[in-house]
Design a binder for these strands. Structure first.
Lengths: 257, 257
DNA sequence: CTCATGAGAGAGCATTGCTCTCGCAAAGGA
DNA sequence: TCCTTTGCGAGAGCAATGCTCTCTCATGAG
């Protein structure tokens, strides 16, 4: 008999959860049934992701996915209890894909080229978003109304932020950050939140944390503006402008040119 | 007979367009029929805006609006040819409301307190958004898939930006901008876009234009992050953090503390 | 007074998310 | 090996949506 605390049960539950919510299998599942279930779950999310890419989240229809799989619509509910759960799986996948893209972009840079690493991260975010606008919109656009982000999305959601925080932290530790003066000192009431954010960039003082937030919100603010049409008829040579603004952010963080 | 170029026709067409798309009447309409039509159009958009506020854009249903008006659903189509057109009207209304809030916030500040004016604009945007998250999401979140912003939304969409540009322009003209050094010079390829953006902030050099874009994207990047849940469990004392970051943006623009 | 125009009512179509029941087949225990 | 539990696909069905079409009637212009 399995107790709920037994490693077996935990392992089984977590695998089921992964199959259900992530549409992924870790490796060979135990039984044949579980294997085909994982296969079909993955197929559903793949088709759904394709529909999402072409039609956007509001146009994602469970019935259309079922049709493409040659299933009847009600059968999909064996795999995802609701449309929102399918969307949640896509969201988690999306965060992981973006996080991986950011990790890869950072990984190929020389470790001590902090400006280069930051720029690589910025470009990775932008290019990932431009290649999959609807998926980006699902992650960083308006949240779907009924949707409550499960706690589990959080770990995936901050993968890119973790990379960013490491760059800042390492740059500061290496003494490579000499920010320009003239900026106001963070107020005392900011200390608490700075401490939370500092978990992502250990050892960094409050004013660098604040400036890091400026850069991070600036990056996603730009990408969202560009993708959601706010730059129409206003900014044409977008790659150039983006690049310059991100270099500017690096300089304002005190990174070397 | 009215030619299409006659002032009468143009006036009539533009009024019809306003009623159709803006849900507003300029003043007393000509005939009684037109007056009641304008009244009903306004009532539809009012109810729709209320539904939008509570349920979000995807939950906005033409039939529900019709039901609340005591009409049958098909009758709504006499006023808005499709759901998207109703949404367009709400978008334009939203841009105008936000623009007006920003204008009002700026108007009560001393003209030469540029830092104060910028902070007032920032707070106005954030507070407007926090008070109507769904409406903000409609403006700055993921665009609805089928939706193509008509040219007409543009004038409303940049009302807030116009205020912002004026602050920058006047601050620069007053010699009140002394930005910190150390930022990279804008590349030559940026000049074209800088010229376009400069129409909103006449007389300002390219590097100030670039920094102005940094601040503007930072403002909306923050507000979107805060509203769309990206700060959950990360930043708690949000008003404080927001205020400090916007002060920081002011300082980086070279505004006096 | 006549007649064209505008507008609401109603039925209807295709589509959606989701539920329920039914029946079959595979997995697992005795 | 047999029997039972479990999982899963099929199908019908419900309520709701956006949108179209036709019918009818009142209003307003000539």
């Amino acid at each position: 008999m399995l107790s709920h605390e037994s490693p077996e049960c935990q392992e089984r539950c977590s695998r089921i959860f992964l199959v259900l919510c992530y549409g992924e299998v870790m490796n060979a599942s135990r039984t044949a049934r579980e294997r085909v279930r994982a296969e079909l779950t993955r197929e559903i999310t793949d088709i759904a992701r394709r529909h999402l890419a072409t039609d956007g989240a509001p146009g994602l229809s469970l019935r259309a996915v079922a049709r493409e799989m040659g299933m009847v619509s009600s059968a999909i509910y064996r795999y995802f209890p609701s449309r929102d759960d399918l969307l949640t799986a896509l969201i988690i996948d999306g965060y992981n894909a973006l996080g991986e893209a950011v990790e890869d972009a950072d990984a190929v840079c020389p470790r001590d080229d902090f400006t280069g690493r930051w720029l690589a991260v910025c470009r990775a975010v932008r290019e990932w978003a431009l290649a999959r606008p609807h998926e980006y919109a699902l992650l960083y656009g308006s949240p779907v109304p009924g949707y409550q982000a499960p706690e589990d999305t959080v770990v995936a959601a901050i993968r890119d932020t973790v990379v960013y925080g490491r760059i800042i932290s390492e740059a500061y530790a290496a003494g490579a950050l000499t920010p320009p003066g003239g900026t106001p000192a963070p107020p005392a009431a900011f200390a608490g939140d700075a401490a939370i954010v500092r978990e992502l960039m250990p050892g960094v003082p409050d004013d660098v944390v604040a400036q890091a937030l400026v850069a991070w919100t600036g990056l996603f603010g730009w990408v969202s503006f560009e993708l959601f049409g706010q730059f129409n008829n206003a900014i044409l040579n977008r790659a150039t402008a983006f690049d310059h603004l991100m270099r500017r952010h690096a300089a304002l963080l005190g990174m070397p040119a």
